[in-house]
């Protein structure tokens, strides 16, 4: 079974294909699109349109889910600009992976009074990841951007594990 990518969320929302989108503006657009497309407001339509109406509403909801998180938005952006780039750039630098493993270990054995400091460090690492991603995209170096997205996933996972422990 192979995943068939959803329609490009930037197109569904009618917003430019960029990494940085204003969060409030995006949310307002989502609420407006929902009012326009939700099947609850389109019940009088012909029954044949029913599935199409549902499909359109689903696209809006799914696009919102992708766009509202900067990292999933970044993935969608890379896929839209260069299909397959994420899959082709999964190999990460061993030194980076070794660091990721150490971070994971730190999370696993963190002392309760160190949780706050570790959380701040991971958050910083993620912020740095995103800044670097922005630079990669700015240089149109999409393979580097793809690796950056993959790398950030380790930091996100470590952060999630830390929250789970706390």
């Amino acid at each position: 079974m192979t995943h068939v990518p959803a329609p490009d969320p930037f197109t569904v929302f009618g917003v430019p294909r960029t990494l940085d989108l204003d969060a409030r503006e995006l949310e307002r657009r989502y609420l407006r699109l929902s009012r326009e497309c939700h099947p609850d407001h389109l019940r009088t339509q012909d029954a044949n349109d029913c599935l199409a109406v549902l499909q359109r509403a689903a696209e809006v909801n799914d696009a919102w889910k992708t766009l509202r998180d900067p990292w999933t938005r970044a993935k969608a952006l890379l896929e839209a600009e260069s299909p397959g780039v994420l899959a082709a750039n999964k190999k990460l630098d061993p030194a980076f992976l070794a660091d990721a493993l150490e971070l994971a270990e730190e999370v696993a054995f963190v002392r309760p009074d160190h949780v706050g400091a570790l959380r701040a460090r991971l958050q910083q690492a993620l912020d740095a990841d995103f800044a670097a991603l922005r630079a990669d995209v700015g240089r149109a170096d999409l393979p580097a951007a793809a690796r950056r997205v993959h790398g950030a996933h380790y930091h996100k996972k470590a952060l999630a594990d830390l929250e789970h422990k706390a």
Binding site: K90, P94, A95, A100, G151, H153, K156
Partner: peptide, 10 residues
């Protein structure tokens, strides 16, 4: 050291 980024394994 190898990783599978989609699931976050190292």
């Amino acid at each position: 050291v190898v990783g599978a980024p989609e699931c976050g394994d190292v």
